[in-house]
């Protein structure tokens, strides 16, 4: 309940040049910023936005994977997928808790998501069409998430950094589990192999888009780097991901759907084809096939559950009254 004391607190700090310099000096000295520390409003806002988006991504991300829980092909896969989707919910829960330390409630963030005011990772606006998608999401999407999130374990904001340590451990397990699903398919029947290749074809480019626009077009990057919320640029992380993932695809005998992909000895990394940024922006702006469905499903869960949450509150109030009367 520590965090709730801060909700709605007046966080205005007089941002004199001396204050900003002292704050930056703490960041430069790799000190962790904690919830009760004075911080520039921009720093607070950036973190609320980023942690909130991250939490929403975990929650919305439960839907495309949840789509296959009831159709998982074996009991072992069903149990593993359930556990995985449950992990995502857990990540959402402690990310919301980390954001709450900055003075915004989970309810407020949820309402912003439902109103279309808060974003979540665009990758979840693509449909999961086959069992291979479940493996491929683990392999590529969780793989890309790890690339993004490992540096966040050193983020200057303490609660976010600490949450990321656990999240990364679990994501790395998910990534291996996903790769193992794809490997089983790649070594399976011709139909299973085709399923795996089709999934890679559909998820490859959206996964590369997960790192965000090119550095030159990324509006929040410079300040976030200076505040050590972000440690590497979008393009750097994307390159790391490609370099790590292409050999994994080769090992499976699957082909990465990029004709321009080739090893560049000089830069010791892969050159790749241009990302279709018009698709990226279309999906970010709400034009992906599943954007409308995802928010509708989240809203439906929330709205259909309103009477349950109300009853819980009403019951707790009755209990408190009875307890008081008994004392």
């Amino acid at each position: 309940m520590y965090s709730q004391g801060l909700i709605g607190a007046d966080s205005t700090t007089e941002e004199t040049p001396e204050f900003l310099a002292r704050f930056q000096a703490r960041i430069d000295a790799e000190e962790k910023i904690e919830p009760n520390d004075a911080m520039p409003e921009g720093y607070r806002r950036t973190l609320v936005r980023q942690i909130g988006q991250h939490a929403h991504s975990e929650i919305v991300g439960m839907l495309p994977e949840g789509n296959w829980i009831t159709r998982a092909p074996s009991l072992k896969r069903k149990a593993a997928l359930l556990a995985k989707v449950q992990d995502e919910g857990g990540h959402g829960l402690y990310l919301y808790a980390a954001a709450e330390t900055l003075g915004v409630s989970r309810e407020e963030m949820t309402e912003e998501l439902h109103a279309g005011k808060a974003k979540y990772s665009s990758i979840f606006n693509y449909p999961t069409l086959s069992w291979a998608d479940i493996g491929t999401i683990g392999w590529l999407v969780d793989g890309a998430a790890i690339m993004n999130q490992i540096p966040l374990c050193r983020c200057s904001f303490g609660p976010y950094a600490r949450a990321m340590i656990r999240v990364c451990k679990e994501e790395s397990f998910h990534q291996r589990q996903g790769y193992e699903i794809v490997m089983t398919l790649a070594r399976g029947t011709p139909a299973q192999r085709e399923m795996a290749q089709d999934a890679l074809n559909r998820w490859w480019w959206p996964s590369l888009m997960m790192f965000g626009p090119h550095d030159a077009d990324s509006e929040h990057s410079d300040q976030s780097m200076a505040w050590k919320i972000k440690r590497f640029s979008n393009d750097e992380l994307r390159q790391k991901f490609i370099d790590a993932t292409v050999p994994q695809a080769e090992f499976l005998g699957l082909s990465v759907p990029d004709e321009d992909l080739k090893w560049n000895e000089e830069k010791n990394g892969y050159d790749h084809g241009e990302i279709d940024w018009s698709e990226f922006w279309r999906v970010v702006k709400g034009g992906g096939q599943m954007n409308v469905d995802r928010i509708r499903d989240r809203k439906a869960a929330w709205d259909n559950g309103a009477w349950v949450r109300e009853a819980a509150r009403a019951h707790a109030a009755k209990r408190a009254t009875r307890k008081q009367a008994a004392e």
Binding site: M62, T70, L75, A79, L82, V85, Q86, L93, Y96, N304
Partner: peptide, 29 residues
């Protein structure tokens, strides 16, 4: 129970329901 996953009335139940489903499926296996 697993049909609820992602559609529960609150996040805490989105964690609790898969937990119960996992217990049951584990026993079934």
């Amino acid at each position: 129970i697993s049909e609820w996953c992602g559609h529960a009335p609150m996040l805490e139940e989105d964690l609790a329901l898969p937990n119960m489903a996992l217990d049951l499926i584990g026993t079934a296996r």
